[in-house]
Each structure stands twice: as C-alpha cells, then as structure tokens.
Design a binder for these strands. Structure first.
Length: 830
RNA sequence: GCCCUUGUGGCGGAACCGGUAGACGCAGCAGACUCAAAAUCUGCCGCUCUUUUGAGCAUGGGAGUUCGAGUCUCCCCGAGGGCACCA
C-alpha cells in the first residue's frame, strides 16, 4: 500500500466535483417507493457563510449520504431565500441593484457549499427572487384570494420605524421588530392579511400528528401561540341606551361575582365618548401613547375612568354595574371588553380595590382573595355547591337559554399580515380599480428593474409608469398594488417547488404525493412559530385550493442549536478576537497590546463581539473533513455547540490516525477463520446504525472512535484480510461524515466503484450478539465487585459464582434475600 | 406572573426498561523518542482517607418509594427558553 501522508488539500481538490451533487430524477422517484426527502432550511444569501450554516448543512448532508447508502432515492435540494431587506438596504448604501447584489452573493455561497462537499441535487435549485418562482407564488396568492383567505382592511398594525414597513404579529419579539430590533409602533393602516385564523383549529389538531417527531418544545410553542381558550360570549345591556357591551369570558361560572365592566380605550364606545368628553379623550390618548414593550407593561399601573354608563346584570335582574374604560383591556383579544370579577381574578382585584368597587366571592375558599382556583360555588343561586367545570357548563346553558350569550372559543392567533412597503419582494398581484375595487391581475406581475433607491418609502410607489395599468375587468385606468409580500410567504412553500422547479404551474401534485411530507427537516429553533407555523398553514390552505393532497409539510423536525464561542473584552471595553488573547507571565489573560482581558461566557457567534470563526480560514488550516467531523462530534445536534479549537485539532488527529492505519493495510483479502475483529465489526454495525437512525451523531462519532480503537489495537495480531475487511466496514460508516478522505481511501484500496455507491453495512444477529457478560455484585446495595459469566446463565449458577467472587467474607446462608437481574447484577441482602 | 426544558469530573458529553455512574473526546500529569522542541506513542486522570489492597463520599439541595435511584414521586434552588394587562 502507498505510504503517503494524509494531505487533506490534495484530497479535497481531487474529489470536489465527485462530491458536489447527486441527482435523482422525478421519474426514478415516481417509479420507486423509496423516496426520502431530507431538507435543511434554505439560506438567505447574505454572502456570509457562517458556522451556523456549516452545522446545519453538515448535519443534513450526513443524514442524506447515509440514507442514500441505505438505498433510498434521496431528495436533497438547496435554494435561496433571496427576497428581503438586506438586498434593498445594500442598494441604498452602495447603489448596487438588489438583484445584482443577490445574484453575486448566491454564487459566492454556492461555491462555499461545494467546498464543504455537500451533496445537493443542483438540478432542483431555486431562488425565490426569480420570476419563475414568484410568479407561481402569485397564482397561489390569487387562489387563496378566491377562497376568501386574503383580505385587505384598515386596522392597528405593527410598524417597524427602521425597516419602514409593517410586520406580522409573529415578527414582533418583545415589542421589537424581529430583524431590525427597533421598538414597534402601532399604526392604523390599510393592509393585506391572510386568514390564518380560519385554520386555528386545524393547526392545533395538526400538532397531534407531530407529537414524538417534532421537538416537544416547538409543539408547545405553537400551541401557546395559537392560544385556544374556551368560554362564553355574554351581552350586557346598557341602561342609558339600547346598545350592548359584548364580553368574552373563560369564567362564565363567576358571573354572579361580576362587579364592573371594563372596556378597552380602543373600544367603539370609548372612542365615541372621547369625541364629546375631554376627560375621556385625555385618558384614551394617554393609553394610546403607552408603550407596548414588555417592561412598560410590567410597570404600568392599572388605571381606568368611569364612563358614566351602566349595564344591567344579565343574570341578576335589578342589579346594575358601572362601565369603566381601563388601560389593561386590549382591543385585539376577545371582544375588547371584560366583566370584572375581583374576588377571582388578580387584575380585577387590583382594579376594584383601587376604585372601591364591590368584591363578591362566589367560590368558597380559605385562601386569601383573589382566589383563581376551583372550589364549591357560593352566592351564585343555581350554581351553589357546584365545582368549576360543571358551573361553567350550567351557566353557558343558562345564558344560551336566556338568549343573552353563547358558548365561544377564541384564539390568541392573529391573521397573518403579509403586505410590506418594500421593493425587493413578490408583488401582490392585485389591481385597484376605482370602479371595480380590488381585481386580481390577469397576468404575472413582474418587478420592474429600473427603480431608484433613495431610502424614502417604497420605490414601486414612486416608479413613473409601473403602477399605472388598465383594469382587467372594466378596462378603465387603475393602479397596481405596490405592496410586496412578506418574504415568509416564499419560504412557506419552497419545499414543494423543489419537487419540480421548472413546472409552469406551482406544484407537481404527483411528486407531492410521492415525496411529501419531508422525512427530516433541519434548521434553527428560532423559526418555531414563524416559518414552521406558516408552512403548516400553507399545506392546509393549499390542500383546500387543490394543490396538494397531504396536510403535513415536515414529518420529522430536528432543530439544531446555535454555534457559540467565548467572547473576550479588554479593560478599554473593546471586544478582542479569541485568537489574540494570550497569557502573561502570571497566567493572566491579556490582549496583543498587553491590556488585561475578561472572558465572557460562550454566546452565539457575532461579528460585533468578535467571537466569530471564519469557515474559509478553518478549512484552510484543518481541512473540510476535520471541520465536518468536529461539528457533529461531542455535542448532540439539538444543543448549542461551543466552538473549541483544541477539539477541532483532535478531529484532525483522529483522521491522521485513520490514515496511518489505512496506509499499513495489505491488499490481501485472505482471511483465516473466525477472528475477533469480525465479531467486533458486527457489534459496531448494529450500534452505529441505531445511533444514526436517531440522528444522535455525537454518539455515532463516539462509537466510530471506539470501533477504530479496536481495529488499531489489533493491527499487529489480526490476519491481513480480516483487518482489511474491518477497516473497510469502518470506512463505510465513517463516510457520511467525512466523505473526502473516505472516497480517497476507498479508491486507493483498489475499488473501482465509489464508496458513495456502497450499500450500508448489514450485521449478522449471531455475530453481533454478546457472548459473555460482566455481572456486578452488590451487598446490601453496595458495589462489592464483578465477575464474568456467559450470557443468559441461569440464576443459580450466577449466585454461586457471585459468592465465589466475594470470597470468605460472605456466607450464602446468612443472606436474607438474593436479587438476580439476568446479565446485570446480583444483590445480596444480609 | 404562567408554561416548558434543563442541572452528571476542570470542559463537551455517555449511561437500554430503576441494576457496575463518568463511554468517547478535550484539557491536564508522567514517561518514551529527541541535543531540544513540535509531532507521535505508552500510562495515569471524580473527590477524600489509605502503602498496595481497600474504605468512605459523589449526578444542583432536601426528603420519599425501592433489595437497589443520575433515572420514579414531592418540596426547594440555579440556568435557559416561550408566552404575557389574553379576560
């Protein structure tokens, strides 16, 4: 065998093209029953390929390569989420057109992906900013429109003052824009929305199908986001007029404890009063100025103002309740009005105490008020003595009987606001005609290229000609909608487009039946309620629009953790690159100029903290295989991964050792009898396959290293053929993680076929079986030694051997009881 | 405030269904090779006492169930995440 040293650079060069991709045609997929769709969240082409990408795509590639060896027709596509703000911002700062900027970034990033040896089907590549993609999306949009799932209305919306656009609820995190981080303002604007709330129940039910295959955390987050609550609607009649105040409650059982009504400052009655009453107007204005950030809400005092109005108690004739406008009642949940039951609600209690309102207990309890738990009802006429669930039920039936209310379920989920006042997005294909109203565009709406970026407003709005069109219905002058779609719209269905990216209709349904749901979807957990909720909604809506047959986009989900690194700051308050931190003579950390440095705990890699590691420099110094191996070693995929250059060195060291053993192998395949390594090999095939199956890649690496240690230990003693055979099996199982070195070794071992075409190793149950086991001996539950015995030996023999091993110190006759767990333990109780 | 997850050596992490805690690595220590260093190889490596042998203590803390608990139950503490004037 050739004895050249491990030179990762030449190996990378040699196999780059070989590894760059595998294509499986639709014909192959449709004719076989073994499609396996492995997908990683598509990247935004920022131009920067960071360690988060490396981790995400390495995990996906390892899984895809192994599935392919297992004989599946693997669909493993890649594409570009290429609409969005950064391209437009770049255009504003350097005058480069967003398309040019985007295309050039895509080519840079595609090159990086090739460098890492990721196996993609490049024939399926898509870019969401291409007309082929977004014009198909417009068809979907219009079909949703026809189904009544799209509407335009004026309402309070989240306005991001930095990105100069509105945002969906899901995109506001702690009162700030998800991308810009700016405090979101409330504006009353006319915007396009998607009726995702129509699918609230379906989205909730769909979570049940994903239990066990999606992380519990994600299911829980979506469940909370949808926020179903059941209760009742109750009408309270105003004393002063014929009007009603409609209230939603989850506690109709406490209706007899009602002592006031509170309406939102944005409630129509509050607004009407504000027109004539200065005190009310001042109060309403004050509330609208109130910040909606978390901290502000935390601190805000419960405040209210009496309207002068009263309502009749719906179930206690003769009783009258005062109506307040209160700052804690929000307009966009329930009906924007509540009844206050201070005895059994903390907020109502605070309010009632402040304004001297009655506190009427209706649940018998020893606990101090407010008491929100269950208990027998009191002061509640026909509910007296009943507990929570039954009391609720009886009250709902009662108000339904009286015709003053009904059972009601509400959701926290809001409709998805999808219009954005930006250029670089999919144009909303609607034409606004003064005569006909909103009319669907009769042909695809292309983004014009000749636009100006001066940073003020939407360039489409200011384009001299683009928006002026004739109405497709009446032929009169009309204008195009100049808003574009939220970019989450594109990522909500791209996994369907990969199945047939050139098709002249949006989705190839035959392929959808064959390939969906995606078998494994890999990406960051930050999309738990954004992208992952929208994609689930899309499947439901697309099914109703006749585009797909299934309802689940992703069968299994793996949310990988962040890549983190320690950060360092010097005494001047500047962040310092980890590589610039050294230790002085006293062992204290200092930077290059000798300033003392403080270490900060590992955090997500970010340029501003200088704790980034560039993928280019690291593959240059350590090689792609080592980086790939390292990123799947040690840490489970779903946990945060702390970058550690020493451990990366360890990965290189391991590959060198592998190479060293490889270069001493003989080409002889002659084997002499039943060897130790044969059994070892089968045991490891079994274990490693199992760990791959659950995507426990860190455990796969540990087992591969154990297996290799065994091979290495037997280099001198095993016959050449057995050694070679064990090593080849090892190489096949190592290959999905480090494809470059494995391709090279496989070829040099004299194979004319490629390792990527090898079938996954199978094990023989008999050979993989353990023959002897080590049994632990305990006396009164304390470890007192071990002994070995053949597997499945009967208890009597095991007990005998245990006492032999214990020696003279213990006598069997003095044992009160002896517990034997087969193949594991003997516990002698004295 | 509510909900969820989580806590194991100096570090990342293993440990099937309650049955030998610490696999596999990283760091560290000692030795071999070397003029020396690096690389490589060999050995050690939870803590305390002990000459070896061994004994005791150890999975955030405290109780409990059990022959036996990292694993199950209850209480408390810490960390991370989600939601939030949600009626």
């Amino acid at each position: 065998m050739t004895r050249v040293s491990y030179d990762f650079k030449s190996i990378q060069c040699k196999w780059q093209d070989e590894l760059a991709g595998f294509s499986v045609s639709n014909a192959e997929i449709l004719s076989s029953k073994d499609a396996c769709y492995i997908l990683e969240m598509l990247p935004y082409p920022s131009g920067k390929f960071h360690m988060g990408h490396v981790r995400n795509y390495t995990i996906g590639d390892v899984v895809a390569r192994r599935k392919r060896m297992e004989g599946y027709k693997v669909i493993h596509p890649i594409g570009w989420d290429s609409f969005g703000m950064p391209a437009e911002n770049a255009a504003m700062s350097n005058g480069n057109h967003p398309r040019k900027w985007t295309v050039s970034n895509i080519s840079d990033m595609a090159e990086q992906l090739r460098c890492f040896g990721y196996m993609y089907d490049w024939k399926r590549e898509i870019s969401t900013c291409s007309a082929e993609y977004y014009t198909q999306e417009q068809k979907i949009f219009l079909d949703f429109y026809k189904l009544g799932l799209v509407y335009r209305k004026r309402s309070y919306v989240n306005w991001d003052p930095v990105d100069q656009t509105v945002l969906a609820n899901e995109q506001v995190i702690d009162g700030r824009g998800w991308r810009s981080g700016a405090v979101v303002e409330k504006k009353f604007l006319e915007q396009w929305s998607i009726r995702i709330t129509a699918y609230a129940e379906g989205l909730l039910a769909g979570l049940e199908d994903l239990r066990g295959v999606w992380p519990d955390k994600v299911l829980k987050m979506q469940e909370n986001w949808i926020g179903k609550s059941s209760g009742a609607i109750v009408n309270f009649k105003l004393v002063e007029s014929d009007e009603n105040i409609i209230v939603f409650t989850t506690r109709p059982d406490t209706l007899f404890g009602a002592s006031f009504i509170a309406i939102s400052p944005d409630h129509k009655i509050a607004k009407r009063l504000a027109q004539t009453d200065d005190t009310v107007r001042n109060f309403v204005d004050e509330c609208s100025r109130m910040s909606t950030t978390e901290e502000a809400i935390e601190k805000a005092e419960k405040k209210g103002i009496f309207t002068g109005l009263h309502v009749r108690h719906p179930v206690m004739p003769g009783e009258v309740l005062m109506v307040y406008i209160a700052n804690f009642v929000v307009i966009d949940y329930g009906t924007g009005a509540v009844f206050g039951c201070p005895a059994h609600d903390e907020r109502d209690f605070e309010f009632a105490t402040k304004y001297g309102l009655p506190i009427i207990p209706v649940i018998d309890t020893e606990d101090p008020l407010p008491y929100v738990g269950d208990g027998p009802h009191i002061n509640s006429q026909f509910l007296d003595g009943l507990h929570l669930d039954e009391a609720k039920e009886r009250m709902i039936l009662y108000i339904e009987e009286l015709g003053i209310g009904h059972r009601e379920t509400t959701y926290r989920l809001r409709d998805w606001l999808v219009s954005r006042q930006r250029y670089w997005g999919c144009p909303i294909p609607i034409i606004r005609c003064p005569k006909c109203g909103d009319v669907p565009a009769d042909s695809p709406v292309l983004l014009p290229d000749d636009v100006e970026f001066d940073g003020k407003g939407n360039p489409l709005e200011k384009h001299p000609t683009w928006k002026y069109v004739k109405c497709p219905r009446c032929g009169e002058d009309a204008i195009r909608e100049t808003d574009t779609l939220d970019t989450f719209f594109e990522s909500s269905w791209y996994f369907l487009r990969y199945l047939d990216p050139q098709l002249t209709t949006p989705i190839n349904m035959e392929m959808e039946r064959a390939a969906l749901p995606v078998d494994l979807y890999i990406g960051g957990v930050e999309h738990a309620v954004l992208h992952l909720l929208y994609a689930r909604f899309f499947m439901l809506a697309l099914r109703d629009a006749g585009y797909v047959s299934g309802s689940i986009p992703f069968k299994a989900l793996l949310t990988q953790g962040m890549v983190t690194h320690k950060a360092y700051k010097n005494n001047a308050g500047e962040w310092v690159y980890p590589s610039d931190v050294v230790r002085d003579a006293n062992g204290n950390m200092i930077d290059g100029s000798g300033n003392p440095v403080t270490e900060y705990p590992a955090e997500k890699m970010s340029k501003s903290k200088k704790n980034v590691v560039s993928s280019e420099s690291i593959i240059d110094s350590h090689g792609v295989d080592a980086v790939r191996l390292f990123t799947v070693s040690d840490t489970p995929p779903e946990k945060d991964f702390e970058w550690n250059t020493d451990a990366l060195d360890g990965a290189v060291r391991f590959l060198r050792r592998v190479w060293k053993v490889f270069s001493t192998l003989s080409s002889s395949r002659e084997q002499h009898g039943n060897t130790i390594l044969l059994k070892t090999t089968h045991m490891y095939i079994k274990q490693i396959s199992e760990k791959y199956e659950t995507n426990s890649l860190n455990k796969v690496v540990a087992l591969l290293r154990e297996f290799f240690n065994e091979i290495e230990d037997n280099v001198e003693t095993e016959d050449e053929g057995s050694l070679l055979s064990a090593f080849e099996t090892f190489t096949k199982m190592l290959y999905p993680m480090v494809p470059f070195i494995c391709h090279e070794m496989w070829a040099m071992l004299g194979h004319t076929t490629k390792i990527s075409d090898e079938p996954w190793p199978q094990y023989d149950e008999k050979l993989a079986a353990v023959e002897t086991v080590t049994i632990a001996i305990q006396v009164n539950g304390r470890m007192r030694g071990t002994f070995t015995v053949e597997k499945d030996a009967d208890d009597e023999l095991v007990i005998q051997r245990a006492f032999e091993a214990l020696g003279d110190k213990y006598d069997r006759s003095s044992a009160k009881k002896i517990f034997v767990v087969q193949n594991r333990i003997v516990n002698v109780v004295l």
